[in-house]
Design a protein around this nucleic acid. Sequence first.
DNA 1: TTATAATATAATGCT
DNA 2: AGCATTATATTATT
Lengths: 215, 215
Amino acid sequence: MFDEMPPELTGVVFVCAFVEVRLLERSFEAENKLEPERKTELARQLGLQPRQVAVWFQNRRARWKTKQLERDFDRLKASYDTLLADRDALRQDNERLRSQVATLSEKLQGKEVAPGIVDVKQDVHAAEIIEEKVPVKAEDRLSIGSGGSAVVDGERNQLVDSSGESYFHDEYQGGCCIVGEEDDGSDDGCSYAVFANQHHPEPDPDQLGWCFFWN
Amino acid sequence: MFDEMPPELTGVVFVCAFVEVRLLERSFEAENKLEPERKTELARQLGLQPRQVAVWFQNRRARWKTKQLERDFDRLKASYDTLLADRDALRQDNERLRSQVATLSEKLQGKEVAPGIVDVKQDVHAAEIIEEKVPVKAEDRLSIGSGGSAVVDGERNQLVDSSGESYFHDEYQGGCCIVGEEDDGSDDGCSYAVFANQHHPEPDPDQLGWCFFWN
DNA sequence: TTATAATATAATGCT
DNA sequence: AGCATTATATTATT
């Protein structure tokens, strides 16, 4: 393994030899930045040039930043999925309420005229919203995907690469699966899960992958 | 500027001297990958080792990938913002509809009882859904933030920095609300909504905020 | 002016 | 080839 090592000053990992790198790592965890004194101290402990220690910290910061971007992406993705499900739920609820209003208004036909608000702005939110397309598979982006919230993706990706530029080869199609339980402590807790996606906020039998419940 | 240049083989940019790098860039734009023949050809044209050309392409691909991740993040962020605004609009509409239903139900007092759906799950979407907290300022991450869509942020960020590690100063807390409908086509469609978050896909009683149903 | 943060780039070795 | 890592160089900042 050390065959290729040049005779001159070698890399940090080799000098620090697999064990002492942790010293650098621990030091980095404690403090992102490197004060001059800590630098010389670390250099002394590791038998490296202070310059090398400084460089190591610089590169370590760069690495951290990249990883952080990946983490943030995954977090945002999860939030997005949640929010999407939330919105779709609201759409449906909205639909339900509209028909309810319609029903009630009908029943009021004999009495008074309905307050006149009923059918205004009927389906604004459901129909006119621009479809969002966002990248999906975080795992495809980098080898170390967080693995979270991959539950519902994957089956229905349509391989529509509209941009032709992204590493992502499929467009986000939506979909969410949530399982809950009653919080009142009752034992017969009914649980439900439904699927929907943003292109089909209305649960249509064809797109509806499944629907189950248990207790 | 060339004072510090070592006498031996210098870097690509120096040999290619500010103008000819474009040859590499153009070549890269045309084709991400580098076939052996193109490699030798480029090396010949630029007076570089084929090895150096290969390395240049490798590093160039890595750079591109990083940029791509940033672009994808910004895209996702924009979608998220749109979606958030969308959801908030739906919430408002929902409120409006609910009060409308209440009003209509009141007016019906003399006739029949309202269909029994009215006050169950009173304000689920508006009140009980946990506020999502997601990373906001894409501009803070990099100097070249997309700059768009700051619309919906800011009001609901709680500045809870649980990790203390992120460039973003607040953490996502999860929260989801799903509403479904029976897919059997029956008209009395039963709808459900449950809560969960990404850290607890399994509904655990402690984390489960609430659960409701109606029909 | 020196030091350093941030960034871009080159090169090496491993898989 | 892809990837992680180390190192050097440039620029902006303090």
